[in-house]
Design a protein around this nucleic acid. Structure first.
Length: 476
RNA sequence: CGGGGCGUAGCGCAGCCAGGUAGCGCACCUGCUUUGGGAGCAGGAUGUCGGAGGUUCAAAUCCUCUCGCCCCGACCA
C-alpha cells in the first residue's frame, strides 16, 4: 500500500506539498515557479472571494479593473516603490514583433496605474472618498517558489482608496485590517494577531503597513494580509490633489490593502493533518459527501435510492454528491474524501436503512455519530457549526501553546534553536538590531502590536530601553 | 545567484559503476470474485530512456555540450 502523504513530523514541507498535490488543490505548471490551481483549490478561493467581496461591499467599496501592463515611467514615479519592486518585476519589451518605445511592467501591484487614473477622477472634496477594489492576477519574479505561498503569478484582491484627510485614510486602513481579521477567524477558522510592520518589513511606498499574522503548524508565521496607510506618497508622485471646501488645493491621502491565494496555503497549514486536507465548513466547496455501502445488487438499489432521496432534501449550497462509483470500495472512498478535506461524510448502508439512520463522520476529529435519517439535514447543519468552531479553537490552542515570552537573549536564542513559534520580546526599535537578530536566529519581527498596555523593558539584544514587546517568529 | 538532487510508460522509481532484446510498483483496460476503513486473482495495453553531438559492430549505460524541473539558503504576499 503506497503511502500518499508524508507525516508532518517527518518532513513538514514535504507534507505540505503532498497535501496540495494529492488533494488536487494545485499542480506544477510547465513554467518555472508557476502553478495551476485545480478545481478543488479554486473552489476554496472562490468561496474566499465571495465572502471577502461581500465584506468589502458592505463597507462601501466597489470593484473595478485596471490594466495588467504598467508603463515603466509610472513605476519609477515613487522612489521607494520602484526600489522595492524592481528586482522582482517581469517586463515586456517587445510588442507586435517590435521593440517597445517604453517597456511595460507586468503589475507586481497596481498603485501606480491606479493613481495615474485617480489624478483624472479626483478634483474636488466631493469626489472623495474613492473606495475601489480589484480582483486580479499579479506577477512577481521570486527566486524561490512554493505552491500557493509564493508563486511567480498569483491571484489576489487589491483595494485602493483615496481620502481627504490622513485621519480618514488611517481609519480605512484599520477598518480593512479588521475585515481581514474577521475573515481569517470567522471563515478560515484561523486565529490571527494584528499589528504594524517595522520600517524594514513595510510595503515599499507606505507610511505604515498593518498586517495579520497567523502561526502555522510548523511554528512559522504566515503574513496573511496587509493594509497600508500610504500617506500622500502616491498623491505626490502622480500629482493628485483636490479642491477643499475652503477653496485650497490639497494632496489626497491613500490606502491600499490585499490578500492573496496565499490564504489557501495558510488554510492547509492551519488545519491539515496526516490524513490530508481539512477544510473549514464555511469555505468548503463541498460540505457533504455521501458514501453508499452495499453488498448485493438489491442492496445497491435500495441504498442508492435512499441516498438520492436524502441528498434531494439538502440545500444545493452544500453541493453534496453521492459517491456511487463502482470502481472503489467504501474504505477507499473514505480515505479519498478525507484526503480532500470534505468536512462531513454521510455513510449509508443496509444496516442504516434498517434502522432508519445514517452515519455522520466528521473530518476534523474523525468521529462518527448515528442520527435518524429524517433529521440528517439539521444534524449536518449543527455539526458543520461545531466543526467550524472546533477548528478555530484547536488552532487557537495550538497557537497559544506555541507562544512564548523571552526575557533574556539566551532564552530567545534557545527558543529559536530548539523549535519555532511566536516569541514576544522587547526591542529597541533599531533596524540594525532587527537585522542582526535575523542573521543570528532567522527570526524576524512579524509585528508591533497596536493595543494593550505599554510595558517598559530593555531590548533583548541591545539592552537599550523599549516601551513594549514585539512579536518575533520565523516567517514564510 | 550559491549549495544539493533529479530527468527512463500517466505517476513513483530500478537499470548506468562493469555497453549486448527496456524493467518493477501504482494507475489504466478486460473478466471473475469482492464491497461498514486504502480488495484479490487472471489476462492485457503503454516508451523518440530530457535534447544534441561523439566513441563503438552495438549506447538508457561511456565522453562532450546543452535544456528543464525540484529541494535547501539569500529576496518576498
Amino acid at each position: 500500500m503506497a503511502r500518499v502523504i508524508t507525516p508532518r513530523k517527518e518532513d513538514y514541507a514535504q507534507w505540505y506539498v503532498d497535501v496540495v498535490l494529492n488533494a488536487e488543490l494545485a499542480d506544477y505548471a510547465p513554467v518555472k515557479g508557476c502553478m495551476v490551481i485545480r478545481p478543488n483549490g479554486y473552489g476554496i478561493w472562490e468561496n474566499m472571494q465571495r465572502a471577502l467581496d461581500q465584506m468589502f461591499k458592505d463597507t462601501g467599496h466597489s470593484n473595478a479593473y485596471f490594466p495588467l501592463l504598467i508603463p515603466e515611467s509610472f513605476m519609477k514615479r515613487e522612489a521607494e516603490h520602484i526600489e522595492g519592486f524592481s528586482p522582482e518585476c517581469a517586463v515586456v519589451t517587445i510588442g507586435g514583433g517590435k521593440k517597445l518605445e517604453e517597456p511595460l511592467y507586468l503589475r507586481p501591484t497596481s498603485e501606480t496605474i491606479i493613481w495615474s487614473m485617480y489624478r483624472k477622477w479626483i478634483q474636488s472634496y466631493r469626489d472623495l472618498p474613492l473606495l475601489l477594489n480589484q480582483w486580479a492576477n499579479i506577477v512577481r519574479w521570486e527566486m524561490r517558489t512554493r505552491l500557493f505561498l509564493r508563486t511567480t503569478e498569483f491571484l489576489w484582491q487589491e483595494g485602493h482608496t483615496a481620502h481627504a484627510t490622513h485621519k480618514e485614510a488611517e481609519q480605512e486602513a484599520l477598518l480593512i485590517l479588521d475585515v481581514y481579521r474577521r475573515f481569517a477567524e470567522e471563515y478560515m477558522a484561523m486565529p490571527v494577531l494584528i499589528g504594524r510592520k517595522t520600517e524594514k518589513e513595510k510595503f515599499p511606498g507606505a507610511l505604515i503597513t498593518y498586517c495579520i499574522e497567523a502561526l502555522m503548524q510548523d511554528g512559522k508565521s504566515l503574513q496573511a494580509g496587509t493594509s497600508h496607510d500610504l500617506g500622500q506618497n502616491f498623491a505626490k508622485a502622480f500629482d493628485v490633489t483636490y479642491l477643499s471646501k475652503e477653496g485650497t488645493q490639497e494632496l489626497v491621502w491613500a490606502t491600499s490593502w490585499g490578500v492573496s491565494t496565499r490564504l489557501v496555503g495558510g488554510l492547509v497549514m492551519t488545519h491539515g493533518d496526516d490524513g490530508g486536507l481539512v477544510i473549514p465548513p464555511r469555505l468548503a466547496p463541498q460540505l457533504v459527501v455521501v458514501v453508499p455501502i452495499y453488498r448485493t445488487e438489491e442492496q445497491k438499489q435500495g441504498v442508492l435510492e435512499a441516498a438520492r432521496r436524502l441528498v434531494d432534501g439538502f440545500p444545493p449550497s452544500w453541493r453534496c454528491v453521492v459517491d456511487d462509483r463502482d470502481t472503489a470500495k467504501p474504505g477507499r472512498k473514505f480515505t479519498e474524501w478525507e484526503l480532500k478535506g470534505v468536512p462531513i461524510r454521510v455513510e449509508l448502508g443496509p444496516r442504516d436503512l434498517e434502522n432508519g439512520e445514517v452515519v455522520l463522520a466528521r473530518r476534523d476529529i474523525r468521529e462518527k455519530i448515528q442520527v435518524p435519517m429524517d433529521r440528517a439535514a439539521e444534524e449536518i447543519e449543527l455539526l458543520a457549526e461545531r466543526i467550524q468552531k472546533n477548528l478555530f479553537e484547536s488552532a487557537k490552542k495550538f497557537r497559544d501553546e506555541h507562544t512564548y515570552v523571552a526575557h533574556t537573549w539566551g532564552e530567545f536564542e534557545e527558543l529559536f534553536k530548539t523549535g519555532s513559534g511566536f516569541v514576544w520580546a522587547h526591542w529597541c526599535g533599531d533596524s540594525t538590531v532587527e537585522e542582526e537578530i535575523k542573521e543570528k536566529t532567522k527570526a524576524t519581527i512579524r509585528l508591533i502590536p497596536m493595543e494593550g498596555e505599554e510595558e517598559p523593558g530593555s531590548c533583548i539584544f541591545s539592552g537599550r530601553p523599549s516601551t513594549r514587546r514585539v512579536l518575533f517568529a520565523k516567517a514564510y
